[in-house]
Simulated assay, not measured.
Amino acid sequence: MFERTINLVNDRIINYRFDPSEKWLVSIGIAPGSLEKPQFIKGNMQLFSVEQHRSQALETQATSFATCKVL
């Protein structure tokens, strides 16, 4: 659906999700940590807007879409 941003190029993709309206897509990848702390896992996320055809790269290891009804 979209090209990977530079932060996900060498990552192992572990998750791909979309919101119920399919207007937002997200891909999550993981990579080994830094040379100083290789035991840690680095998580990266790419959030993509279908309407705007734009991505935003963020550091994270998990994400979710939710719908809330405000009363």
Rank of each mutant, 00 (worst) to 15 (best):
F65W: 04
L25H: 08
F65S: 01
S64H: 06
S21T: 14
I6W: 11
L71I: 15
I30W: 00
M1V: 13
L35K: 15
I14W: 02
D19E: 03
M1I: 12
L8Y: 06
Q52I: 11
P20M: 05
T63F: 06
C68W: 14
R54P: 00
S55T: 13
N7Y: 08
Q46W: 04
Q46N: 14
R12S: 05
G43Q: 05
E51Q: 14
G43E: 02
V50I: 15
N15W: 00
I13T: 10
R12N: 07
K42E: 13
L25K: 10
H53Q: 13
M1R: 09
F18Q: 10
L47N: 03
K42A: 09
G29Q: 02
P32T: 08
Q61A: 03
Q46M: 08
Q46E: 14
Q39T: 10
P38Y: 08
L35H: 12
R12E: 08
Y16K: 10
Y16M: 05
L25G: 01
I30D: 04
K37Q: 13
I14G: 01
S21P: 01
K23Y: 04
F18C: 08
F2K: 10
N44R: 15
S21A: 12
I6Q: 13
D11N: 13
F65N: 02
W24R: 04
R17K: 12
N15A: 04
E3D: 14
W24L: 12
L25T: 01
V9G: 01
V26H: 00
K42L: 10
S34I: 05
P38N: 07
S27L: 09
F2S: 10
P20S: 02
A66T: 12
Q61F: 05
T5K: 04
R17D: 07
I14P: 00
V26P: 00
Y16T: 11
Q46L: 06
G43H: 05
T63A: 08
Q39K: 07
A57S: 12
S55L: 04
Q56F: 12
C68I: 15
L47M: 15
V50N: 04
K69M: 13
